[in-house]
């Protein structure tokens, strides 16, 4: 009996030790595998190839692009060559455009955050129909293609556009912002506002009334309610909104291509110009790597914000 028992128990015990955990992780792995394989194949491999090409590895799968592109630097040591990076960083155009790209990104992100937060706070603290209309309007750009919006912004601020026409009607000379960096900032704010507004509204709305009322009872002014309760408590969605806005603006192409000047322009436009018009794919990839590094820096904040929110909810 005992023999039979132990003989039966042993496999059961063994199965129980491995089974549920293993099965669950096996299913989990199986479910995660397709997207991971897809990412590795269609994103990971091309990224590795591109970075290799930027370091001068022109053989293998990079041979076609290397045979077409001009001014391609070839690897001189086992890890490659940094000559393409030197080419790009010593080109005054690049440093100028890098500065403009960072500047536009910072300014646009700050304006978007300020606007989104203003709309969200107005909706939370004052409410009413007007506040809802504002919140609704801020989401409208989501439904208008960027190409069309860029074109509209360009004609709106152009030399014969609406703004100048209105100024002219009252005898003033309005600014011409078409084909300037100002128009690029306006366009970037327009395209980024909807997502930031949705994040800010959801963040601010989720703060319980009780906290605000308690602060009011304790004699807090509206200003301190905003700065000491509403903004700190919705910090995580705001950080997420800021990172998404900044990464979006950093890599934007359509808005600066349509509404901006030929020079200085943003790196998204430069990458396209170097890749296609100048036929310098290697330099274009170097710039893409720079944008990637910048975006990774911003993404760090996104990961940090997500981690904090997960920790707060006890998931980590």
């Amino acid at each position: 009996m005992t023999d039979i028992r132990s003989g039966r128990r042993a496999p059961v015990g063994a199965r129980r030790r491995v089974s549920p955990e293993a099965r669950r992780s096996g299913i989990g792995l199986a479910m995660a595998l397709p997207p991971v394989v897809l990412l590795a194949l269609f994103v990971g491999v091309p990224v590795v190839l591109a970075i290799g090409f930027s370091l001068g590895h022109t053989g293998g799968l990079n041979s076609t692009i290397a045979s077409i592109g001009l001014n391609t630097r070839e690897a001189t040591s086992w890890w490659g060559t940094a000559q393409a990076y030197v080419d790009v960083f010593t080109d005054p155009r690049f440093t100028r455009d890098l500065g403009v790209t960072i500047g536009v990104t910072v300014v646009s992100t700050l304006i978007v955050l300020a606007l989104a937060l203003g709309i969200a706070l107005n909706l939370r603290l004052r409410g009413g129909r007007l506040a809802s209309v504002f919140a609704g309007l801020a989401v409208v750009p989501l439904f208008i293609p960027v190409v069309i919006a860029s074109w509209a912004i360009l004609t709106f601020y152009s030399g014969d556009g609406f703004v100048r026409t209105v100024f002219a009607l009252v005898g003033l000379t309005g600014p011409t912002w078409g084909y300037t960096t100002v128009a690029v900032v306006i366009g970037s704010v327009w395209t980024s506002l909807p997502f930031a507004t949705l994040m800010a509204i959801s963040g601010v709305q989720s703060i319980p009334d009780a906290m605000i009322e308690a602060a009011k009872d304790a004699g807090a002014s509206s200003f301190s309610i905003v700065t000491r309760i509403l903004v700190p408590l919705s910090a995580i969605p705001l950080v997420i909104a800021a990172t998404f806005t900044a990464i979006g603006v950093l890599g934007s192409f359509t808005v600066p291509y349509f509404t901006g000047p030929n020079a200085p322009s943003m790196l998204g436009v430069d990458i396209s110009k170097y890749f296609q018009a100048f036929n310098h794919p290697q330099q274009a990839i170097v710039m893409a790597v720079v944008v990637f590094v910048l975006a990774s820096g911003i993404a760090f904040f996104y990961v940090w914000a997500n981690f904090r929110s997960a920790k707060k909810e006890g998931r980590v």
């Binding site: 001009l70 155009r93 030929n262 020079a263 200085p264």
Partner: peptide, 18 residues
């Protein structure tokens, strides 16, 4: 075509925004 690519590049470096 490759001369034109270089022309585009040099134009971009030398003409706009200078």
């Amino acid at each position: 075509s490759q001369m034109a690519s270089d022309m585009n590049n040099l134009w971009d470096a030398k003409v706009p925004g200078q």
